[in-house]
Amino acid sequence: MPTGKVKWFDAEKGFGFLTSDDGQEVFLHSSALPAGVPSVKAGARMEYGIADGRRGKQALSVRLLEEAPSVARATRKPADEMAELVQDLVNVLDNSTGALRNGHYPQTAQSKKIAAMLRRVADEFDA
């Protein structure tokens, strides 16, 4: 069976293209993806069968060999730096607990600081 990498795939449109190891472009429809795999990322390695479609080569019976490397995972902070960031977030949240228990949200500036820190931590954890 031929192998190749996903050139691009649009989950909303339900199709994309593979580039085979020998350089051919092959159409990839979402119906050819394995059960439970709704989408694939560019760079994912796949094994597939080929059929001649109306507009050229089309992938069939696709099998995911290797997922595309995560850009977020490759660029995220080292764990020891994240530990410090998470500890700072815990301290900020702990300081706002008293006001919340008394039925009041923190002041706007403090709320914005908390929200920004939560987003930053979430972005770092999202791989």
Rank of each mutant, 00 (worst) to 15 (best):
residue 1 M to W: 06
residue 2 P to L: 02
residue 2 P to W: 04
residue 3 T to I: 15
residue 3 T to V: 07
residue 4 G to S: 05
residue 4 G to A: 03
residue 7 K to S: 05
residue 10 D to C: 12
residue 14 G to A: 02
residue 15 F to W: 01
residue 16 G to H: 00
residue 20 S to E: 03
residue 21 D to F: 15
residue 22 D to N: 05
residue 22 D to I: 04
residue 24 Q to T: 11
residue 24 Q to G: 08
residue 24 Q to S: 14
residue 26 V to K: 00
residue 26 V to W: 02
residue 27 F to I: 10
residue 30 S to D: 06
residue 31 S to H: 00
residue 31 S to V: 06
residue 35 A to G: 10
residue 35 A to Y: 12
residue 35 A to D: 14
residue 36 G to P: 00
residue 37 V to L: 14
residue 38 P to R: 12
residue 38 P to F: 03
residue 38 P to G: 01
residue 42 A to D: 15
residue 42 A to F: 07
residue 44 A to R: 01
residue 45 R to H: 05
residue 45 R to L: 12
residue 45 R to F: 05
residue 45 R to N: 00
residue 46 M to S: 00
residue 50 I to L: 12
residue 51 A to S: 08
residue 53 G to N: 08
residue 54 R to T: 07
residue 56 G to I: 01
residue 57 K to D: 08
residue 57 K to Q: 08
residue 59 A to D: 00
residue 60 L to N: 03
residue 60 L to C: 08
residue 62 V to T: 02
residue 62 V to N: 01
residue 65 L to T: 02
residue 66 E to Q: 07
residue 66 E to F: 04
residue 70 S to A: 04
residue 70 S to G: 09
residue 71 V to G: 10
residue 74 A to W: 06
residue 74 A to R: 09
residue 74 A to Y: 07
residue 75 T to D: 14
residue 76 R to V: 01
residue 77 K to A: 14
residue 79 A to P: 02
residue 80 D to R: 11
residue 81 E to S: 11
residue 82 M to Q: 05
residue 82 M to I: 08
residue 83 A to M: 12
residue 85 L to W: 07
residue 86 V to R: 05
residue 86 V to F: 15
residue 87 Q to Y: 09
residue 88 D to P: 10
residue 89 L to Q: 07
residue 90 V to M: 12
residue 91 N to I: 07
residue 93 L to F: 06
residue 94 D to E: 13
residue 95 N to P: 15
residue 99 A to I: 15
residue 100 L to W: 08
residue 107 Q to K: 15
residue 108 T to D: 09
residue 108 T to G: 14
residue 108 T to P: 07
residue 108 T to A: 09
residue 109 A to V: 11
residue 110 Q to M: 12
residue 110 Q to R: 08
residue 112 K to P: 08
residue 112 K to R: 13
residue 112 K to I: 13
residue 113 K to G: 10
residue 118 L to W: 11
residue 124 E to I: 07
residue 125 F to T: 13
residue 125 F to V: 07
residue 127 A to L: 15
residue 127 A to H: 12
